[in-house]
Nucleic acid binder design. Sequence first.
DNA 1: CTTATTTCGGATCATTTTGTCCTATATTTG
DNA 2: CAAATATAGGACAAAATGATCCGAAATAAG
Lengths: 144, 144
Amino acid sequence: MFSKACHYAIRAVILIAKESREGNRMSLVEIADRTGSPQAFTAKVLQQLARLRILESSKGPGGGFDLPPEKAKKVKLSMVVKAIDGDAVYLGCGMGLPQCNPKQPCPLHDDFQKVRNELRLMLEGTDILTLSQALDDGRAVLKR
Amino acid sequence: MFSKACHYAIRAVILIAKESREGNRMSLVEIADRTGSPQAFTAKVLQQLARLRILESSKGPGGGFDLPPEKAKKVKLSMVVKAIDGDAVYLGCGMGLPQCNPKQPCPLHDDFQKVRNELRLMLEGTDILTLSQALDDGRAVLKR
DNA sequence: CTTATTTCGGATCATTTTGTCCTATATTTG
DNA sequence: CAAATATAGGACAAAATGATCCGAAATAAG
């Protein structure tokens, strides 16, 4: 469904948001460790998110990544997915036709679009702050 | 969502079913041509489907692939997808956790499972015969 | 100002997926 | 039986994705 890069991105962003709520800024090393993601690869992914201003980064001692609650509330899962995987998930044809539209649809067009729309609505309706709160009392985990 | 191999498989199976309804058996060359898929690669994919008895193949002059209507009715899209891509689409975690279950869920678990379940139901409820009928009066296409 | 820390970014490598080529094998037809 | 046709399957090439390494740039602190 999503690429590995996207998985790492989602996990990292949720963790960063959680720690930001407690005033902590996260270093790459800690993020990779607590999400069980490869460090250097995760660095690339976070770099990309930082460049797009989906999260904030700062260099130097005490630096790292953060995503303050007010912002985490506005950042939807869809934005993270789109930043890393592009919009193929929303727009691509179920059987890979380059131009699949209502005028020249593939045989699966309608059924597929219905499901994909559910996915889109879910991703657009889910913000990172809310997801990060699921971590609070151990209701959810990011590793293992 | 699905791999390219899976896209080729879906397109091929639908075309084969359509032609089978008219008593025709399809050669690999014709399948690749009419679905816009790479020939040799499609061969591998069809081989795999034939080995799993999802469609029928025969060698020699006049040979090729076919999928008679009674069988096409029983073959669901889910079977084709599973044969090529495995069941990661149904079982995988939305953020890639190796063990994401209701006891130790990822923060997205419930929302994601809901969407994925819709997808599963759609794939399991859609048979190849029906899809092939959408091709009949040009209501749908398999190429371009 | 120097040093230590931390992200940035380029280069490179590994793995997986996609795609091709060629030979073997089966089958129909003359 | 011989020849032609078609799938089966192995070996290999190319492209995309995943992952690592290392030096550059920025910044905080002594």
